[in-house]
Design a protein around this nucleic acid. Structure first.
Length: 638
RNA sequence: GCCGAUGUGGCUCAGGGGUAGAGCAGCUGAUUCGUAAUCAGCAGGUCGUCGGUUCGAAUCCGACCAUCGGCUCCA
């Protein structure tokens, strides 16, 4: 007998050799039905795994995150089987589970089309019904290489060759299909029902553009049909909040063939921008930041000096002025360096926090452009903090707190990454390590969870990145804090210390929004275009019932405008329901219906965005108080 | 930049070798109507661009550009 400790702490004795499936069945029928795999002492295993000695055991059910991941991975095998049946000669790359689904990278003479996805899906359904079991087999490295080499699976051979010496190599077979795989898998293909193949994409083998591009097929799979439908519905919903769609509908900005990646901001989009910038300036002044503005075009020699010419040239736009080479700035830092050097600095001046809402241009690859989320010119809410080495931790913490303060106000949830030294970078290993550790310490002092992003730092230093999600769950880097020992060196920045000698300051580059453009995109998606009153381009729309109420409406509008409330009058000769509909469509926070009753009593009938039949009657003074309070609170009150 | 798809009036989309259509928006007129679309009329497109095939191309072919979904890269 072996002793099994379950997740709830209870202990069961079972016969040696009892499988995880048997164990699940002995606990309850429901559990047995929902079980897809198990964990023995924390390691994920197939349900068919026998229990040989005392262990902590957990049953993984299909409705758990881990269970779904196993289902998704198993479904990618099923898809690979279907593809090889339909398109013989296709060889396989990798086919992992991902968030909400799975993909498989394949290499085939055949160029897959969206119609093929339907065929593959049909074949998968047919194969799933065969109720084939996923069978594990452990084999030696040589056997594995021979097996896959015989079948022309060169990518699998490459993977096996790269496995560590002591790795256990296993294969899984379902039906007539065998794949190299660590497992675990679901017991049988019959569990795979609620799935759909989603789209096709190219993907470089092993993620390197030096390698061949394979064809990637994405699919989604869920425990049950209702979950799949729910997911597909949510996807459709998410598309409705896409900032590109809302940007057009709400007349915020536009993009044109004449300037790919160079957005045009419309009057309403400018109001958003200006609100964000005003708030930014206020918050930064409070924290002792100064604001500067540096030129957009600077000489090549400057960029050579800063290292950008060596490390960033491919992304820079260049031009000639009077036969001299110049470049449009891709970053604001060199301008900031020049400003620092302009005066002799004392240790008493430090930390010196110099902010700049700087417009930068970067040549992004054409295929990477994406609405306002990835553009070729954008405004960074930048700042450079010059400090004593002893001030690093405190300053970095200050920025972390500032970012958190901003994101909380807008209601964003974010995650943090620490990006370390990239291949193409400058400086010694020691300074990089020192800088990286300083950032780590600050993160740990704040108790923030973070993930390490190896090799993703800037060429001059490591960075802390703050990431936000868009409507489809894709994450975008926004805030960043970059520690830099290189620029002060390159530009020979100094301060006079207590000892009367020159010393080298340390510098931090940091942004909070990241890019105003990107932030507006994410805000638009976050609020689904229904901006809080503070940000709404039009805060109040006054809807007179008929011509004779126009005078009252205009007087009201003037009064609101006087108070800095963005109000307008819809004076078209349309029915009130028509005007209401449009005010709602434009997601204007307050629609005020004014007719005889209101004009006589100096009141308004307030209809809030998103509230069905409302029409609460308020005196004009009450309404003004409500709007002002809501603007000040930065969120929706009623 | 790479892979695949797409490109028809301001917007959403139909059509598809014989010379372009709808709805919404716009304009004009009528309607003065109290909480999500009043009615009628008018105007608007060298069908992304450039080439080719053809008696004839928006439609077929090619190149380019842009957009979308990914990959790579990044705020």
């Amino acid at each position: 007998m072996v002793k099994v400790t379950l997740k709830d702490g209870s202990i069961r004795e079972v016969e040696q050799g009892t499988t995880l499936a048997d164990l699940a069945a002995s606990i309850s029928r429901g559990l047995a039905k929902a079980a897809v795999a198990g964990k023995i002492n924390g390691e994920a295993r197939d349900l068919s795994t026998p229990l040989e000695k005392d262990a902590e055991v957990e049953i993984i059910t299909i409705d758990s995150e881990e269970g779904l991941e196993i289902l998704r991975h198993s479904t990618s095998h099923l898809m690979a089987e279907a593809i090889q049946k339909l398109y013989p000669g296709t060889i396989l790359g990798i086919g992992p589970a991902i968030e909400n689904g799975f993909y498989y990278d394949v290499d085939s003479e055949h160029v897959f089309t969206p119609e093929d996805l339907e065929k593959i899906e049909a074949e998968m359904r047919r194969l799933a019904k065969e109720n084939n079991t996923y069978q594990r087999r452990e084999i030696s490295r040589d056997e594995a290489i021979e097996f896959f080499a015989e079948r022309g699976e060169k990518y699998k051979v490459e993977i096996i060759e790269d496995l560590p010496e002591d790795a256990v190599i296993s294969m899984y077979t379902q039906g007539e299909f065998t794949d190299l795989c660590a497992g675990p898998h679901i017991p049988s293909t019959k569990t795979i029902k609620a799935f759909k193949l989603m789209n096709l994409a190219g993907a470089y083998w092993r993620g390197s553009e030096k390698n061949k591009m394979l064809q990637r097929i994405y699919g989604t799979v869920w425990a049950k049909k209702a979950d799949l439908d729910d997911y597909l519905f949510k996807l459709e919903e998410a598309k409705r909040r896409d900032h590109r769609k809302l940007g057009l509908e709400l007349d915020l900005f536009s993009l044109h063939d004449e300037g790919p990646g160079f957005p045009f901001f419309h009057p309403k989009g400018m109001i958003l921008r200006n609100e964000l910038e005003d708030f930014w300036r206020k918050e930064h002044r409070k924290r002792g930041y100064h604001e500067i503005k540096t030129p957009i075009i600077l000489s090549r020699t400057l960029w050579e000096n800063s290292g950008h010419w060596d490390h960033y040239k491919d992304n820079m736009y260049t031009t000639k002025i009077d036969d001299e080479d110049f470049a449009v700035k891709p970053m604001n830092c060199p301008g900031g360096m020049i400003m620092y050097k302009q005066q002799l600095r004392s240790y008493r001046d430090l930390p010196l926090r110099i902010g700049e809402l700087g417009l930068v241009h970067r040549h992004e690859l054409s295929g990477a452009l994406h609405g306002l989320l990835r553009v070729r010119n954008f405004t960074q809410d930048d700042a450079h903090i010059f400090m004593l080495p002893s001030q690093i931790k405190e300053e970095v913490i200050g920025v972390i707190e500032l970012v958190d303060h901003f994101y909380k106000i807008f209601g964003f949830e974010y995650h943090v990454e620490l990006s370390t030294r990239p291949e193409d970078s400058m400086g010694s290993d020691e300074t990089w390590e020192m800088a990286t550790n300083a950032l780590k310490e600050a993160l740990e002092a704040k108790g923030l969870e973070y993930k390490i992003n190896p090799g993703d730092g800037a060429f001059y230093g490591p960075k802390i990145d703050f990431h936000l999600k868009d409507c489809l769950g894709r994450t975008w880097q926004c805030g960043t804090i970059q520690l830099d020992f290189q620029m002060p060196e390159k530009f020979d920045l100094t301060y006079i210390g207590e000892d009367g000698q020159k010393h080298r300051p340390v510098m931090v580059h940091r942004v909070v929004y990241g890019s105003i453009e990107r932030y507006i995109a994410l805000l638009t998606e976050h609020y689904a275009g229904a901006f809080p009153t503070r940000l709404a381009p039009v805060q109040v729309r006054i809807l007179p019932i008929s011509d004779r109420h126009e005078e009252y409406a205009q007087a009201l509008r003037e009064r609101l405008n006087e108070l800095d409330i963005r109000a307008e009058v819809d004076d078209r000769r349309e029915k009130i329901s028509y005007k209401i509909r449009e005010a709602q469509t434009l997601k204007i926070p307050f629609a005020l219906v004014v007719g005889d009753q209101e004009a006589e009593t100096n009141s308004v009938a307030v209809r809030r965005y998103g509230q069905g039949n409302a029409g609460e009657k308020l005196s004009v003074d009450e309404f003004i108080a409500l709007v002002k309070e809501e603007i000040a609170s930065k969120k929706r009150l009623v």
